[in-house]
Design a protein around this nucleic acid. Structure first.
Lengths: 361, 361
DNA sequence: TCCCCACCTGACACCGGTACCACATCGAAC
DNA sequence: GTTCGATGTGGTACCGGTGTCAGGTGGGGA
């Protein structure tokens, strides 16, 4: 039986209804301190009758702890981040924590604003997939640290920032994918999706420089691509690197451009889902068959990839685990377990399907 | 220049640093009441120097307003809900509100717990895609209402609950899809995904009864399927309705079962993405060609559907708009604009691609 | 010259919890 | 019979804001 009043009852009202002191009611309802069974019973009954629920805001005010984690991602509608957020959310729920999720559209200013919101709401810790490319642009993160709010990075590390980061080994995963293509006999492999630069980098140093100055995951994947090429002593060809906006449309345009090259690529490595679908559109438009004419490997497995014709060979990221692990690391920090900060690397799974074949002769 | 202290400065400290009274500092920083330009300047400077940021918790305590919206969805990792949440989140950010997102795994008990969390955190409003099937199981929602917290439903209405609900017209969309299949000449159309019952309903009444007692969207889509059949005077065949768990595996199993029927379906209507991928797996295993041998229409368009071979004909749901609209309706309620509650129906888009063809003769 | 009022400023109560501590009660021990 | 300690209860300060209101100050009008 609960009250129908619209303004929720407070501890004082419960105490009065039970005929005990405010502290006694507080101890009973708050589950701390001692209360005799008899009074406890009375308080509980009164609370039940009034429909009492503790005001979490007031509790946070006085304890200085909000039992809330803040999460900042680029785009919550992106299934990758959806999985990460779910992993975080499930793990923190298990600890009695809630999550405040903010989506920044991959915009640094929005990320800074989001960080301030989380600081203002006094979250106990922050998990962020940051759009910051280097320490210089990560001032907001250090701001949070300066206020003693533990922060862990997820998906993307920020070079130079001494923080825990839960990531996958993008470089190794990319390298493995490209090695598979090389092993199948491919020598002209396109890299689809990458640093959004307009000018095509002609020299290798230039490219590596760009990679290191861009979004961590993109840079690492490009590095992995170069690593694999190096293994085979293949010289990188700037024409096989996608440039420009990271959109499905541009991926299609860039792949089309590559296919029209005198020496067109016989395989494509797509570093994101939209890159893959863009590439597939380009292939279809040119009447090329996946696998037979052009081999494909992509990042971020999905159930769709398995039902394509042919099924696509993909690198699967452990999105849920990424989030869960980030939460664990954050909780360790919140608990004051001062482990050494650094990279926590989770393994990816190479899902071998049927979109890789030897190049057509 | 900001302070490096770990415990954030309070208004009192700013006031002291500026050599003014607490109230004066509060008025300046809180942006209310009058302060002379001179003192305002001093306060602002002191705040800047100390790195002052208002404690949103304390503010909420005293104003009774948290500037936070609560959102409850079944699974934040599901791209559909990801889109909805993003729509909500963007719309509320524009109003200066933050969103507390809770994911319930489609479990009513978790949903009740989530509602309590939101009540405890004193959110100003709640948007929920409820797993509740009827008013009887929506006690937690009425609980929130009793506490004067506005609630709006999204994606799923709850029959009998007098609340604003922002939805699409599932019944009409499903009907349109099935009509398209009928128009193409199909007479045996499978319904993939639906009420998770074990016993196959033999009689029409029985089926409708089940539909009305199940998840709103599922029931409506089934109704739309029956509507279309009725139009053509086709009698429903229980064998063409999927039963059992709503998983990709079961969808595959059920479609396989249908394909093995003496009179196998020549078309399938899939009401969710996993239903579609399950169906595609079944078709592939039987060596049947999409479009040519079996026509397909699915719910929830994605970029993958467009690059399948052949491209899949799909019903696109306006996920972002669904969320944005839900937020708008909620804000209207928060602002006290007592419009009449009811259904807010958004239009779906029928994306005609190439997975529908006349049945093989 | 005096008074009144408009204009500013700061004291303080309040939001609803937590937690420290004083105090009352009662039985046991010396 | 007094003292001591254990036990149980309630008073109260505090968290960091908001907002009301009393009171001080200075200028203008009578």
């Amino acid at each position: 039986m609960t009250s129908e009043r619209s303004v929720p009852p407070t501890i004082s009202e419960v105490a009065e209804a039970a005929g005990v002191g405010r502290s006694t009611a507080a101890r009973t309802l708050g589950g701390y301190g001692y209360v005799s069974p008899e009074l406890r019973e009375r308080v509980l009954a009164a609370a039940e009758r009034l429909g009492y629920r503790a005001n979490a805001l007031a509790r946070s005010m006085s304890t200085g702890v909000s039992q809330t984690l803040g999460v900042i991602v680029a785009d919550i509608a992106n299934p990758f981040f959806g999985g990460v957020v779910r992993g975080i959310s499930d793990a923190s729920r298990a600890r009695g924590f809630d999550t405040l999720v903010l989506s920044t559209h991959e915009d640094l200013d929005e990320e800074i604003a989001a960080t301030n919101v989380l600081i203002d709401k006094r979250v106990d810790g922050i998990i962020v997939a940051s759009a910051a490319l280097d320490v210089a642009s990560a001032g907001h993160i250090e701001q949070a640290r300066a206020r003693d709010i533990p922060v862990v990075l997820v998906d993307r590390a920020v070079p130079g920032l001494d923080l825990d980061a839960v990531v996958i080994d993008n470089r190794a995963a990319a390298r493995e994918a490209v090695v598979r293509l090389l092993d199948a006999g491919h020598r002209r492999i396109g890299f689809v999706w990458g640093p959004p630069v307009q000018a095509r980098p002609r020299r290798r140093r230039e490219l590596i420089d760009i990679a290191s100055k861009n979004l961590w995951t993109d840079g690492e994947r490009l590095q992995g691509y170069l690593d694999a090429l190096d293994d085979e002593g293949i010289v990188f060809d700037a024409d096989l690197i996608m440039v420009g906006a990271k959109t499905e449309e541009n991926a299609q345009a860039e792949v089309t451009r590559m296919l029209d090259l005198p020496e067109a690529p016989t395989a494509l490595f797509c570093t994101e889902n939209d890159a893959m679908t863009g590439a597939l559109r380009a292939l279809r438009a040119r009447g090329l068959r996946v696998g037979a004419d052009v081999s494909l490997i992509g990042f971020d497995d999905s159930s769709w990839a398995a039902v394509m014709e042919p099924p696509l060979t993909m690198i699967e990221q452990p999105t849920l685990a990424l989030g869960a692990r980030a939460a664990e690391v954050l909780f360790a920090a919140i608990d004051g377990e001062a482990g050494s900060t650094g990279l926590h690397t989770l393994v990816t799974r190479f899902v071998d399907r049927a979109s890789v074949a030897p190049p057509p002769r």
